[in-house]
Every structure is written in structure tokens, then in C-alpha cells.
Design a protein around this nucleic acid. Sequence first.
DNA 1: AATGCTTACATTGTAGACAAAGCGTATGAG
DNA 2: CTCATACGCTTTGTCTACAATGTAAGCATT
Lengths: 221, 221
Amino acid sequence: MSEVQTLADKVFQEMTTAIVRGEIKPGTKLSEQALVERYGGSRAPIREAIQKLEARSLVVRVPNAGARVISLSLAELKDIYEVRLELESMACRLAAERMTDEEIAQLYTLLLEHKKNIKADSGLSYYQKAGDLDFHYRIIQGSKNARLQQMLGGELYHLVRMYRYQTSTNKARPEQAYTEHYRIVEAIEARDSELAELLMRRHIQKSINNLEKQLGNAPSA
Amino acid sequence: MSEVQTLADKVFQEMTTAIVRGEIKPGTKLSEQALVERYGGSRAPIREAIQKLEARSLVVRVPNAGARVISLSLAELKDIYEVRLELESMACRLAAERMTDEEIAQLYTLLLEHKKNIKADSGLSYYQKAGDLDFHYRIIQGSKNARLQQMLGGELYHLVRMYRYQTSTNKARPEQAYTEHYRIVEAIEARDSELAELLMRRHIQKSINNLEKQLGNAPSA
DNA sequence: AATGCTTACATTGTAGACAAAGCGTATGAG
DNA sequence: CTCATACGCTTTGTCTACAATGTAAGCATT
């Protein structure tokens, strides 16, 4: 995936995972000097890395005042999920129209593995979580829309992941999710794009409700 | 709007308009040295400006090889419009739910001005074009979703504008657009979010068809 | 003559120094 | 004692220099 990049890129990647995992907490001031000492190199590539993080909305930079790790309000988080809900539903609709038969077959294979993992772990989160990401990732790829892939994968993805880490929305309903995934794939196989979109919308809506419950807020609207 | 920024920001803004207007043509190599001579300053702020342009997908940068102004294929252009269609329809739905009565009243005022301009210009494009942007902009603001606003306004907006400039999709059907706008506002006023979304979807779809016609391609699918 | 290699040049990536803007603290006036 | 101002320090923005990489031209070899 990564072809040995420039130093700025490496720092960017390291910082991305650090922020997403919460190793650097939201709101933290990112001093360029401190980052130089931590990651090596000079300020030039560090600044580039920070700018890339800003482009992905992981940090906020204000002129002459420095950069801070983003700290999302509940409202902003809801906005993100609202957009994600729409775009992934759209992706699912397009996937139903555009995925090859082979890709659909591979989806079934993936689901089979998930089923195994659920039984083996009896509810453990790790595989299910990775599996969930994998499933959604393939649907998004199936949309065959590069811009859509870029938006969901590049920008929203990290923000969502970041707050999953921090709220540990992990161990959530693996069997139920599996069933929903299965129904979605069936709709895709039947080339029923409207149904596929609807099912994906409900599927994500459930996970949003789940998240809001964990945040101690009754689902609004 | 602009609070006297850093040099990098100024260069970024100038380059943005230059690219959008086609003064710098798609595919052009952006030599840092040349840009220094053109815009002043040193390479550091120039590089920052280029990186910001990259973040907005206006230029593509490859490591150790430099930056080029983006040159969209027809497929990529379709992808962008496909996403925009979905997001703006979504924005319209949300606007119907969330705009204040006052904001809706202002929409009517705006439409009134457009009507005047259409008569005065008898089909001239400038006001209508600016007016169209203004109309869509207000709907997007009305969604009250900051992330959505950012995506539509920050990223997709410039790309769309760029290709409007270059294909001169301008003088297109002002009266028809006005009527469609009016129906949309009526739906918003009635708080009929589903209808508002549908009407916006059709409205944009028409402009897409229009664009494809001008590009000499039959609308696909 | 065409292809592959070598070498020189141009351009980008990185480093470190300088300039300017913020921020905190301390000091003095009210 | 409180507030305002000024000073100094810290941090960011910018510039210049150097290193590394990509590109192209010229030469040699087949």
C-alpha cells in the first residue's frame, strides 16, 4: 500500500494513527518543536504533516497560534454521521448496480468468515469490528465512484474511527449486524438497488442509535 | 471574510481563482520556482499553498516529481456530479426541516430579484449564474449541517465551478431554472422535506443532463 | 540506427537560521 | 487590591542553503 514515501508522509501516517487511537487526545496543542523531537526530521516536513492532518479535519490550525487536535462537539459528531449515513446508503445503491458478480460472490465469502469468527469469539469485538470495516469498505469500493470512495474513505472514515476508539462502541451486536449484512448482500445480488440502499440506511441508523445511547443521549428527531 | 492572512493563504486564494477561471490550464506543471517568481515570497509559503490546493483536489502532487493542475476525465467529472447530486438533495431535505421561517422568507426575496434580472437581461447569463449559486448556497446553509456545508462548499464547489467556466454551461435556461427554484422553495415552506429533496434532485439532474449534452455525450444510464 | 547506460542539470525534499506575531508575567498606576 | 501596560520569551511564518531525487541529453555499445 505504501511505497516508501517522503518523511512528511511517514510522520503524517504515524500521527494519524496516534490521533485516531487517542494516544494524542482531542484538544491537545501540537507544538512543532515538540513534534520534531518526537518524530525526528526538521520543522519543514512536520509542518507538511500537520497540514495534511488539517486537510483531513483531524487537526485545526489557526494562523500564528498553532495547531490543535480536533475536539468534536456532539453536534459536529451528529453532522458527520448524518453525512456518512447518506453517502454510504448511496454507495450501497450504486454497488447494487455496478458490482460484478464476482465481487458479490466475494462478499458472500466474507460473510462466511464473519460467521465463523462470531462463533469462535462468541461475541468478542476485534474480529467483528475489523470485519465490519471490511464489509463496509467493499461496498464503498463497489460503488465504482472514486470521489465517493475518497470522501468516505479519506475524510469521514478517520473521524468515525476516532470516536469509535474513544467511546468503545465495539462489542456491539455482532449477530444482529451479521444478519443485516447478509440481507444487504442479498439485495445487491438481486440488483435491487433501492432495497439495498434502504437496508444499508437502516443498518447504519441502528449503529448511530447505538452510539447515541452510549453517549447518554436519547436519539434526537 | 478574509482577515489579512498569512502569505501562503493569499497565494492559495489567488491560485485558486486562477485555476478555477482556467487561467492556469488543467494539466499544467506547477514549478515552485516559477510560482515564486510569479507570486513573490519564497518556496515555503508557495509549497503550503500548493498543498492546500491539493487538499481541495485542484492539483495533484506526486512525490519528488512536482504538482500539476488537475485534469479530470469525463468519468471523474461524472463521479463528482453524482456525489453532488446526492449531497445537495440531502441538504434540501434538511433545509426543509431546519430553516427558520425568516430564512425561507429571504429565499422568496431572492427569487424576486432573480425574476427581475431575468427580465432585465432577457436571458443574459451573469446574474442568473451568480443567482443560481446564491440560491444553492442558501439551501446548503439551511441544512444546518456544518460538515455537509464544508464538503459541498469547500471541495466540490470549486471543481464544479472550474468546469462550468471551461464548458461555458452558462446561458442555460434561466426561466426554467427559476420555476424549479420556486417550486423548491414552496416545498420547503410547506416543510415537505421529501418533496423538497425530490425537486432538488430533479433540478440538478437536469443541469447535469444539460452539461452532458454540451460535452457531446448522451446521458448515460 | 537504435537501445541502454552514464553523467550533468533541474526540481523537489529537508534542514537550520532569521523575522514577526502571540502569550504570559511582572511591574506600576489607580 | 485590581487593572492596564510593557517587557521578554515562546511559537509560528518565512527565507536561504543543502541534500536527494527525477529528468534529459549525450555517449558508447550492439
